[in-house]
Computed example of a mutant assay.
Amino acid sequence: MLEMKLKRTLYRGGFLLLIFLFLGTGIFAQNSGLFPVSNNRKYGYIDKTGKMVIKPQFDYATVFSEGLAHAKIEGKRGFIDKTGKYIIDPIYDKVRNFSDGLAAVKSKGKWGFIDKTGKVVIELQFDYAYTFSEGIARIQQGEQFGFIDQTGKWIIKAQYDAAFDFKEGLARVKQGDWKTGKWGYINKTGALILEYRYDDSFDFSEGKANVRMGNEQTGKWGFIDKNGEFVIEPMFDRAFTFIEGLALIRIGSFKTGKYGYIDTKGGIAVNPQYYGGHHFSEGLACVKETKDGKWGYIDKTGKVVIGFQYDIPADFEHGLAKVRIGTYKSGVSGFIDKTGKFVWQSS
């Protein structure tokens, strides 16, 4: 099995491209007030005012997490501090951001973990290793997934056909193939808390998890609590995670349906009227009215606060959002504030 894809298409209208290409810098991760930018194919960092504080010099760079950011140069990756100095030399083929004080790194085909001094604390021995979440890291060995603690000890042996990180004390796991298998939820001892009965599922967020009953074509999505009880019955053709008290939902098919937002009781907060949409972040969500239209931003009442003008949008993080106007060949990307004003643009 290839490495499980963590990132999933959240809405229609080109967001898959957005996830993999536009947001490769990891803008959704923790942020220290510095934002990675690319100029002439080199990465540097700006602050919230748009001032360049680390000059473009890296082949690739991500957002800071726990005080360090991973940066690539000449094909290898290491970690820099907020001055742009390498604290951990670029010697690894792949790395993930620091979380819980450790970072997953890959060399010679195997993954392990280092601390912030660069010391290897869990030997490079795994086929795939993911970021620590709530003190536990997801590991893939062959085609099976399990979990280790921060000493590298297996606390839940590799036994699942698919698995995701622990969130709010539970992790979603799957037994069976992608078409016919079912999802359930385990706790940190590996006990199955919610039985394998869901045809698709997402992580718990704000006390609820969105799950699907039935197949992808005709099944319906609803929300469960940590007892497995439906607190919002399966009634939506698509439903996404609650963030800031609202969840993105779709009424109708993938091709013709419309996206809107519900509140925590399942009531409609913003009418389903959009061709595409994304989660709320810092009180705003990017939405798109038509297939060929542009993206803009609404507030939680549905009011358009930044007009429809962007070809590729992103969530607001620490007061800024990365956007692009135009194509990759001829357009301009940069960061906007919540008035829609550019604080930095690519040259």
Rank of each mutant, 00 (worst) to 15 (best):
K5H: 07
A269N: 04
N271A: 15
I73Y: 01
L68D: 01
D237E: 15
L17Q: 12
V173M: 02
T131V: 14
D200P: 01
G283H: 08
K157A: 12
A71R: 07
E282W: 11
G340H: 06
F316E: 04
T180L: 10
E317Q: 13
V287K: 10
Q273D: 10
F132H: 00
G257E: 03
A61H: 05
T241V: 11
D263K: 01
R324E: 01
K94D: 06
L34Y: 12
G14H: 08
R212H: 03
W183G: 00
E3P: 02
G112S: 02
T256Q: 12
M235C: 09
G26I: 00
L194A: 01
G78T: 05
T117E: 13
A137G: 06
K119P: 04
Y310L: 07
D100W: 00
T25A: 14
A103Q: 08
T327D: 13
A103C: 05
T339I: 02
N215S: 11
V270C: 04
F242T: 02
L192C: 06
G112T: 10
I80A: 06
N97F: 15
F132T: 00
H279M: 12
Q150N: 12
T327R: 08
T180M: 09
G302C: 09
S346V: 06
I325K: 13
H279Y: 15
K7V: 10
R197E: 13
M213V: 15
S32C: 08
D81A: 05
G257H: 08
Y274M: 03
K48D: 04
I136C: 00
E3G: 03
I136W: 02
I136S: 00
R77S: 14
R172W: 11
K94L: 09
V287N: 07
L194Y: 05
P272R: 01
K94V: 01
D292E: 15
K291E: 15
T62D: 12
K110H: 05
K48E: 14
R8D: 05
L192T: 11
L18F: 08
Q273V: 12
V305H: 02
E134I: 04
G181H: 07
V37S: 02
Y310R: 09
E233I: 11
F204P: 04
K157R: 14
L102V: 02
F335H: 12
S107I: 15
R96P: 00
